[in-house]
Write a protein that binds this DNA or RNA. Structure first.
Lengths: 127, 127
DNA sequence: ATAATTGTATATATGGTAGTTATACAATTA
DNA sequence: TAATTGTATAACTACCATATATACAATTAT
């Protein structure tokens, strides 16, 4: 499995792993039902503790990308793109909510927030 | 000086202090030129280290609400409401920028972001 | 059956960061 | 010149995230 981990940048190893696997799933390199390397094998390959690979797989499982079964292994789930998009939307909504609460506190109205949004998003076909 | 600090909730003491003083400045309880209690006196009153009151005052100074002078004391600055608003706007822009970057990554277009914004902001005279 | 392989669960360092504090220093005022 | 004010440096503590070791449970292969 082609995974590169780097100690520079301070990004946790388990996140580097889960993000790279997530990318492979999203771009089709890994497909539904594919078996992932076992936590222990991947750990040996990457020369890290297998508890760290487990942590990475837990992230992927939490986000609905894979499923793991004791004694069998870990497998790519059917990718529910709708679900994925919904999750992303929820995170975006959280950020916007923060911004809106802060805006309301200091009297920034909806119109102004819209202008900020348009400005930051930039030109867009759907603009 | 009427300041209440609570150990519940985990909010740092220095933030509880700076936020309460900030509120007093913004609602007019404290006016331009008013002298704040000395860091040491406030610390005794609140039964905390005066380094913590200093930390609180540093927050206020960093945000442009007060000024401190060695040997003299700390004083409320002329409140530049424009400046305050600008600073709040900058933080809001930061949050919206995060949301927009994430949105672009997963194909959420500007129109959809606008809808989210409108929904979260809710009904508004300027809507 | 039984050994090998796979994932799970609990406990334990380890490192960094945030909050708070103590203590020594500098400037102003009484 | 003593008292009061803010400043600067360092250290202590608590907490959290990361990574690890080790024992356990389920499945598969022999």
């Amino acid at each position: 499995m082609n995974i590169n981990i780097s100690n520079a940048g301070g990004e946790p190893i388990y996140l580097q792993i889960s993000e790279q696997i997530k990318a492979m799933i999203l771009d089709g390199t890994l497909k539904e039902g594919d078996m992932l390397p076992s936590m222990r094998n991947l750990a040996v390959e990457l020369r890290i503790s297998f508890m760290t690979t487990k942590r990475a797989y837990e992230e992927l499982e939490r986000d609905g990308f894979i499923e793991s079964y004791t004694g069998k292994g870990s497998f790519v789930k059917a990718q529910n793109m709708e679900l994925f998009r919904e999750e992303q939307l929820r995170r975006i909504e959280g950020l916007i909510d923060d911004a809106v609460q802060r805006a309301k506190k200091c009297g920034v109205d909806k119109k102004e927030l819209r202008e900020i949004l348009d400005l930051i998003y930039g030109d867009d076909i759907n603009g």
